[in-house]
Amino acid sequence: MATFIALFAGALAYAAVLTLAAVGFLLLYKATGVVNFAHGDLLTLGGFLAWWAIDDLGWPVVPGSLLAIALLAVVGVVLERVAYAPLRKRPQMTVIVATLAAALVIRALIGIWQGSEPRRLPGPLGDGAWHVAGAAIAWQRVLIVGVTVLVVGALVWAFKYTSFGRQVRALAADPDAAQLCGVRVRRVSMGAWALSGALAALAGILVAPLTVLDLNFGFAIMLGGMAAAVAGGFGNLGGAVLGCLGVGLVQQLLGGYVLRDYAGALPYLALFLVIAVRPQGLFKTHASRL
């Protein structure tokens, strides 16, 4: 029972991590139609910026993390100006390659700035754990699940009730019609990039204390999030959350009990099967922009 609870908590936390990563690039995808392959490296950058603020500047954990999140929002806008805005009228493949190039640059810059040795980022709640029925659940995991629920809730609310959210939804539904109706594409695009960068930093800062922070840290998480988002039906927020939950459960429970050695491959196997059987994703009902 204790093992099950620990594994289940692990699954929930892992799903929350993937969800946090996934909402960042899904938001951007909805607003601009870009699949941002630099998102994973933004996660890494967020982690390293927080580490820099906390360790080098000596800030406390929470303000340091907030600083990193704010900085990443700025980085998001810079990326929009440098790598996306000049290519907005170009074919999508060009833009995707540009984001991949941006990912390479960001990763290399982090390597030059901080070196490649792995770090350990402190969490805001310390190293304590919550003991339930004999299982120890790290506070950080509880925090991740809580923050993820808050973030997803806030995003759903914002999509529904704010002007920005409605503009994003209009752009996702039909970019040309939205533009004709007066949606300010440029402004929404910059806002979405900033928000996406901030979400990436948030995800990176929350996940980093549970694992080691190195140059490949974010990219792996992003791939997992992308896999979950595709399995859920790309562009569909609810589907992505469910996909992340499915990936978390498959990896932790199935990998924890049965196929221990191959746990890392299980989510991808599930993803492959989903794409083979239902290429549009599990919860997709209509054609998407891709």
């Binding site: 390659v97 540009a98 941006a102 390479l104 640059v105 290399a108 810059l109 030059i112």
Partner: peptide, 15 residues
């Protein structure tokens, strides 16, 4: 050490 930056920048400029 600037190799990654160079690759990325080159790719960006090229595309």
């Amino acid at each position: 050490e600037y190799q990654g930056v160079l690759y990325g920048a080159l790719l960006l400029v090229m595309i």
